[in-house]
Computed example of a mutant assay.
Amino acid sequence: MISEGQPGGIDGEVLRRGELTVLGRIRSASNATFLCEAHLDDHETHCVYKPVAGEAPLWDFPDGTLAGREYAAYLVSAALGWDIVPYTIIRDGPAGSGMVQLWVDQPGDALDDDPDAGPDLVDLVPAGKVPPGYLPILQAYDYAGDEVTLVHADDIRLRRMAVFDVLINNADRKGGHILSGVDGRVHGVDHGVSLHSEDKLRTVLWGWAGKPVDDETLAQVAILRDDIRSGLGEALGEHVTGREIEALLARTVALLNDPVMPTPDRHRPIPWPAF
Rank of each mutant, 00 (worst) to 15 (best):
D114F: 06
Q6N: 11
G96N: 04
S230F: 03
G181I: 01
D105P: 01
S180I: 04
H187R: 09
I89H: 01
S97Q: 11
H196A: 15
T217V: 14
L138R: 10
L248E: 04
R268F: 04
G237L: 03
G233N: 08
F61Q: 11
R229N: 14
Q139I: 11
E37N: 10
R16N: 12
A235Y: 07
H239G: 04
I223Q: 12
L150A: 09
A209I: 09
H196Q: 08
Y74P: 10
A79T: 06
L40T: 06
E70D: 15
I223H: 08
E244T: 11
A250N: 12
S194E: 05
A140Q: 11
P264H: 04
R225W: 00
I223L: 13
E70C: 10
Q106H: 02
A72G: 05
H267T: 15
M99L: 10
Y74H: 14
L179P: 05
G68M: 07
D109I: 11
F34Y: 15
I26Q: 11
V48Q: 07
P259E: 08
R25Q: 15
R225C: 07
V221T: 06
Q6A: 14
D41T: 04
V100Q: 07
L75P: 10
I89L: 05
E238M: 08
G68T: 09
I137K: 03
Y71G: 02
D120P: 00
T33R: 02
K211P: 02
Y87T: 13
E216R: 12
T149P: 09
K211Q: 15
I178Q: 07
R69I: 07
Q101V: 07
D123E: 07
Y74D: 08
L35Y: 11
I178N: 08
D172F: 04
N31Y: 01
G133D: 05
V130F: 05
M161F: 12
N31D: 15
K200Y: 04
R159P: 06
L20N: 05
P131L: 05
W272A: 06
D172G: 13
V166E: 12
E234R: 14
G176M: 00
H152Y: 05
E238H: 11
Y141V: 09
L66A: 14
R27L: 13
S30E: 11
P212K: 01
V52P: 01
I228G: 09
P119F: 05
D155E: 07
E246S: 14
Y141I: 03
G175M: 01
H191P: 03
W82N: 06
P264I: 05
Q6R: 12
D11G: 08
D92L: 01
P136C: 08
A78F: 00
L80A: 04
A254T: 12
L158G: 07
R17G: 01
L58H: 10
G128Y: 02
G231E: 14
C36D: 03
L248F: 00
V100T: 15
